[in-house]
Amino acid sequence: MSTKSPKVLHIDWTTCEGRGLCTELLPTLLTRDEWGYPLPYDRRREPHIPTELKTDAQRAVKLCPKASLRIISRPDR
């Protein structure tokens, strides 16, 4: 059993303005609603970040114009 907690993408909905940059940087993880706000494809509040998207997710966090994204660890459920 792995001791690492899975990484998830936390979206701070109170600061997000729906500019859509994160959906452009993470097109296989996020889509947009009609106002440009990100919607996770897995329909979770905090989508799981696959290992192969870790670098792209870090870039999206860094480039988010409103600093509305964070990568956090969540225990396995």
Rank of each mutant, 00 (worst) to 15 (best):
W13A: 10
K4L: 07
E46I: 00
W13R: 12
Y37P: 00
P6Y: 11
C16W: 15
K62E: 12
M1Q: 07
M1F: 08
R32A: 15
P65D: 07
L9A: 08
I71Y: 05
L9W: 00
G20D: 04
R74C: 06
W13F: 14
T28K: 09
D56T: 03
H10L: 15
D76N: 12
Y37G: 00
K54P: 00
R45V: 05
E52W: 02
V8C: 05
S2F: 07
E24L: 05
L63R: 09
W13V: 04
Y37N: 00
D76G: 02
P65C: 10
T55G: 00
K62A: 14
S73D: 12
E17D: 11
Y37F: 15
R45N: 04
K54F: 11
V61S: 08
C64M: 03
L39N: 01
T55A: 14
K66D: 12
Q58T: 01
C16V: 12
P65F: 06
K7D: 06
K4C: 01
L21C: 02
C16M: 12
I49E: 01
K4A: 14
L9I: 02
T28N: 12
S68A: 15
Y41E: 03
R44D: 12
G20I: 14
I72Y: 01
I11F: 03
K4W: 01
D56I: 00
I71E: 01
T3Y: 01
L39V: 14
T31M: 03
P27K: 08
L39A: 01
G36E: 06
P6R: 13
L9E: 03
P65S: 09
D33Q: 02
R70A: 15
W13S: 11
A67N: 15
T15Q: 10
R44Y: 04
I11R: 00
P47M: 09
E17Q: 13
T23L: 06
E24N: 09
K54N: 13
R77Q: 08
L21M: 09
R70E: 12
E17V: 08
T3E: 10
T23V: 12
K4R: 09
H48Y: 14
S2K: 13
H10M: 15
H48E: 10
R45I: 00
R44E: 15
L25Y: 07
L9N: 04
V61I: 08
Y37R: 05
A60D: 01
Y41D: 01
R45W: 07
E52F: 05
S73I: 00
T14A: 15
R43C: 12
E52V: 11
C64N: 07
D42K: 04
V61N: 07
R59M: 10
D76P: 05
L69E: 02
T15I: 13
R19W: 14
P47E: 10
K4I: 10
E34F: 12
C64F: 14
L53T: 02
Y37H: 11
A60Q: 03
P40D: 06
K66M: 14
C16H: 08
G18W: 09
R19H: 15
K4N: 08
D33K: 04
P50C: 02
E24I: 05
E34P: 00
G18V: 09
